[in-house]
């Protein structure tokens, strides 16, 4: 009910922005063609705005589309997306005055892969999935099953530090405070850290063996905006386009280093991966390293200088002999 009111407000605001010529584009979500999906709606037509939705499946980080559109843009942003927008502004990829942020306070998105695991069935057989407070309710063949959010939300949502965007023009709905499940969002990383270094390396080797080098992780990532990616360089050729695990892993490591200080833990890389490589267990560790060493969190403070353009006199000295 609250959701539908909020959705209607979004539709009204977006329509008004386009009609009054305040923006040239609206980027939001509309219903997807498959069960429990949404899809980005990128439109200049006020008539299309009636298709905008807000629900528990608005997964994409839409800020990814900002640098490729010309003119002023109205964009629907969850907390993590808003951080990415701030980060893009800091990197001069986007100008603040060119975006109208339609902020959606977000209590976390439902991870379909987790739900499928929990019930042991494909999403195709599920009748309905809904969210009620700290429960996720799955209806299967008429019967309802309840799961806690720590079981059914995306890991990065459980660890979310900014459910309500700080930087916005229009706020849709009441602000939401961070959930208290960060430990659940950190579980996979903790398990990895308990393993021996050799076992960890073997783990990543095995995971990256099935990488098909589709670059969905890179292309879904708003922080990865290079015009020309290092993997495409031929002089020097840093790595071959042949998807051997060694180069796949090297690609991932480099990508994580490149987006350090820009990664907002939106989880898009992992979600985009068609072969289930647990990429967030890489990006989140880099996120934590950056937070730990340099007290820096991407897109949280719009006055902060970008991580790699700045330094403190005294930091990380213990790592250097």
């Amino acid at each position: 009910m609250i959701n539908s009111a909020r959705q209607q407000r979004l539709i009204d605001e977006a329509k008004a922005l386009l009609k009054q010529g305040k923006v040239r584009w609206i980027i939001g979500f509309e219903a997807g063609s498959l069960k429990f999906t949404t899809t980005p709606l990128i439109t200049a037509d006020a008539g299309d705005t009636s298709r905008l939705v807000i629900n528990s499946f608005i997964v994409n980080n839409l800020s990814n589309f900002l640098p490729e559109l010309e003119g002023r843009i109205g964009i629907v942003a969850k907390g993590c997306d808003s951080r990415s927008i701030v980060s893009l502004i800091q990197d001069s990829k986007v100008r603040r005055e060119d975006v109208v942020i339609l902020a959606v306070p977000c209590s976390g998105l439902i991870d379909l892969a987790k739900v499928e695991q929990l019930i042991g069935k494909d999403r195709d057989e599920i009748d309905a999935i809904s969210r009620k407070d700290d429960k996720v309710i799955v209806t299967l063949a008429g019967a309802k099953r309840e799961f806690s959010i720590s079981e059914a939300l995306y890991d990065n949502c459980l660890a979310c530090e900014l459910p309500t965007p700080q930087e916005y023009d229009i706020l849709l709905g009441e602000p939401i405070l961070p959930s208290n499940e960060p430990a659940a969002g950190q579980k996979k990383l903790d398990e990895l850290k308990k393993m021996s270094p050799e076992a960890r390396w073997q783990f990543w080797k095995k995971e990256l063996e099935r990488c098909i080098r589709c670059y969905a992780c890179r292309n879904a990532c708003p922080a990865c905006y290079c015009q020309r990616c290092f993997v495409e360089e031929t002089e020097p050729q840093w790595l071959l386009p042949i998807p051997h695990w060694q180069d796949n892993l090297m690609f991932q490591i480099t990508m994580d280093i490149h987006v350090a200080g820009r990664c907002t833990d939106c989880g898009e890389c992992q979600r985009a991966c068609p072969v289930n490589i647990p990429l967030r267990s890489l990006t989140k560790e880099m996120y934590d390293i950056v937070a730990d060493l340099f007290h820096f969190k991407a897109g949280m403070d719009k006055e902060a200088l970008p991580l790699m353009t700045h330094y403190e006199q005294e930091e990380a000295e213990d790592l250097i002999g």
Partner: peptide, 28 residues
């Protein structure tokens, strides 16, 4: 100083992946 930031995250990250930290060293 800029080198130190890049070096530090690389070293820490490689260690997390399972690379012995002694393989990558820095000095002044």
């Amino acid at each position: 100083y800029r080198a130190r930031r890049k070096f530090a995250i690389t070293k820490k990250f490689l260690e997390y992946l399972g690379v012995d930290p002694r393989r990558l060293q820095g000095s002044w």
